[in-house]
Structures are given as C-alpha cells and as structure tokens.
Nucleic acid binder design. Structure first.
Lengths: 214, 214
DNA sequence: AGACTAATTCAACGTCCGTTGAAACGCAAC
DNA sequence: GTTGCGTTTCAACGGACGTTGAATTAGTCT
C-alpha cells in the first residue's frame, strides 16, 4: 500500500492550506482538516508530527517554487542587462509579476497559499519570523539589484520602500473582497491582470520619488 | 457597587485587545483574556454577550476616535483650500498622518488596536466585511477628495491605488518586526516618524503616476 | 501461501473550551 | 438595618480539542 501515501499526504496538505488560509492556524481544528481531506483524524499524526508541523509543511510545500520563479525572473532581467543596470521598474516586475502570473494562470492552486502568506505577513505572531525564514535570501538579492539601479539611494529609504511594496503586494494576495465592496464591483480582488498593470508602476514611481536624491 | 462596572469593562477590553492583536480571534481563549484582566471568567459574559461580541466591542471602542481624527484632518485640508483643489499628497497625508501620529505619540495605547486592524484587513475571513463596516464612509469621502484633485483619473485606477495604499499602511500597523530583521536593525517597525516621512510621498507619487492621463 | 511493512482505522485519554445558573458580595436608598 | 440592585465569585455543564496506542487493512517480496 506504499505508493498511496503521498497522494493522501497531498490531500491533507490541500485541505489544511484551504482552511488555514481562511481561518488562520488557531481557527482550524485537525478534525476539520481531516474531514475536508476525507481521511481519518489519526492519519494527520501518521504523516505529520503535530498540528504545528502540518502548518509548517503547508508553508514549505510551495515556498521553493515561489522562490524559483522569482529568481528566474531576476536572472532574466540581469541577462537582459549584461553591462548597464536594469530600471527599477524592471526589477520590481521581476519581483511581483511571477507571483501575479501564478495567481492569474492557476488561481485555484495558488489562491489559498497566497492568502495564507498575506495573513502571516501581517501577523505579529508569525510575520517577523516566518517571512524572514522563507523569503530573506530572495529579498536580499532583490534589494541588491535595486541598490545597483539606484546607486545614490540611502539604504534606509530602500528598506522602507520595500516595506510598502510588501504591504501592497500581500494585501493583493489576501483577496478579501474589500476592494470589491468599496468600488461597488468596479474592481475585483481576484483580477490579477488589473493588478499586474498597475502595481509595479505604482511601486516603481514610489521608489523613484523617495530614493532618488534630487 | 455601580461605578466600578465600567472600569472592569475597560480592563477586559484592554486585555482582549492585547491578546486578539497577537494571536487573532480564534487563538485566544476567554479564560486567557480574563486571567490577563485579573477577573473571573464569568464576568466576561456579564459585560458581553459572547466571545464574538467582546471581539466586536474591542473593534468598536476605538473606531469612532480613529474616524474622528481622520475626518478632522480632511476638514482642515478642505478649509485650507476653499476655492482650489488640494494636492493628492495633502489628501493622503490627511488620511495617514492622524493615525501615524496617534501611534507615535501614544504608542502603548494604540499599538495593539492597529495591529488588530492590520490582521483583519488581510484576513479573508474578516477583511471584506469588517473593514467595510467600520471605514467605508471615511474612505468614500477620501476617495471623493482624491477624485476632485485628479478630475481626469479613471475611477478604477483610483480604487486600485487606494488598495495599494491600504496594504502599505496596514502592514505598517502590524509591526511584525520583519523590516527590522531584513534591514538588520537599520529600520524599526515602530519608528512611525520614519514612516510619516516616506509613506505619504511614496503613495502620492504612485497615485500621480497611475492616475494622471498623460 | 505466508511474512513483512506501510497505510489506515477505531476508540479513547486527559484537558480545555465557551457558556451558564445560583449564590455571595458591596453599596445606596429608605 | 433591612431592602434592592448592580457586580462579582464559584462550580459546573456538555462538547470539542490535540494527540496516542493498538488493531486492521492492503500491497510487496520470498
């Protein structure tokens, strides 16, 4: 009965991802997850050590791929500019568009995971530690690229601008329906094309305005 | 023994605010809250109908004051410009600075409340409904003011720019320590002066770049 | 066919959950 | 000084929680 193991494990991770994204770590019980996964509650503890371990496994499962597509996008930008520095907007696009593209093209697969990241990023409980653990190397590389594009910018300005970018991007991931309500349907939380058209330009303009010494 | 009632009620709200902000609604038990408040668990149900009712009461307690200071700031901007339209940046400052000022000047009082708002804004569970309920009138007035400052802007652009503003602002409220880690101490989550100096200018530049038809 | 192993089920453990009813307390008015 | 009322305490309820050990199933190898 060996090869069925991974299939079940993935079903558990799917169910956990979906429920954690909606209600947070504490808002979901292991029994709920296993009911959603259609498996016995004890299987959660056969495949994972604890509820917390399952939570970490949910985060880990897609983290590598998330980082890979962003690294690849930054690679492409740098190869496009072997001698000169890319523009700030190109770099920001390499940071944001791979994720927005994942969400646009495979929404059902990625929506819950991104929504979970959004909650974690804004949680005093998890935000500092987990975001650092999962994304620091990529973000550092991204910051280095920006620094080369704006060699006269002060580091402190760059970090705060990244902070604003991070907030704008993760609220997009949350897909709370808030903007749908506010705009009375004119904008839709899940409309990643609308975001893609605007977010990188919005953020790049902010970076330039704050970080460019006159 | 009548007049002590409100004092206890406030102690319960303080404790609930602190704990909800850190661990979310589901991550906190009524018993934890009452232990923190130094009162018997049954008192929670004497002063409030249920755990959920207590949660709502925590949100309601400071919502009016939050809205008041922002309305007052917008009043001041409009009185400063009886005939012409204020600049986008002035309007955004009226939206952000009153809150950043509260946080800077009375950090212990407001930190937990703002952190709670940050989590709610990024939660699929609460974000859409609660943010709309508490802040829609103010945000609509703010959007109207921006619209007057940029009469040629498309509504859909304005709403998306507001969305980016909302994300950047609420991540600031969360004070997760992430930016502290990333910048290795160069930036500090609680440094509201650093935010005040940069956020409105960053956001105003984004609005102008996206919403100004060339 | 029978032994071995990984996967799954079942039943239960001690603990803590949100919530409640009744009793006790402290203060004001009469 | 007793009545009355708003506040607080105490003890408990049914149920759900995270987690576990032992038994059962299904597939693999000899």
């Amino acid at each position: 009965m060996a090869p069925r193991s991974n299939e079940t494990k993935q079903r558990i991770l799917d169910a956990a991802e979906k429920l954690f994204a909606k209600e947070g770590f504490a808002g979901v019980t292991v029994r709920q997850i296993m009911r959603e996964a259609g498996a016995d509650v004890a299987l959660a503890y056969y495949h994972f050590d604890s509820k917390r371990d399952l939570f970490d496994a949910v985060l880990m499962r897609r983290a590598d791929h998330m980082n890979d597509v962003r690294h690849a996008a930054l690679d492409a930008v740098e190869q496009r500019h072997p001698d000169d520095a890319p523009s700030v907007q190109e770099i920001i696009e390499a940071f944001t568009q791979p994720l927005l593209k994942l969400l646009a093209e495979d929404h059902d697969t990625w929506r819950d995971y991104f929504a979970l990241i959004a909650q974690i990023n804004n949680s005093p409980q998890w935000g500092g530690e987990l975001m650092t653990r999962f994304f620091d190397p990529l973000v550092r590389r991204f910051m280095d690229a920006i620094r080369r594009a704006m060699p006269d910018a002060a580091d402190v300005d760059l970090f705060w601008c990244y902070h604003f970018l991070s907030g704008a991007l993760t609220l997009t991931f949350a897909e709370t329906g808030r903007i749908d309500n506010l705009s009375q349907g004119l904008c839709q939380s899940k409309d990643m094309d609308a975001i893609s058209d605007r977010l990188p330009r919005f953020i790049a303009a902010g970076f330039r305005h704050i970080c460019n010494p006159t």
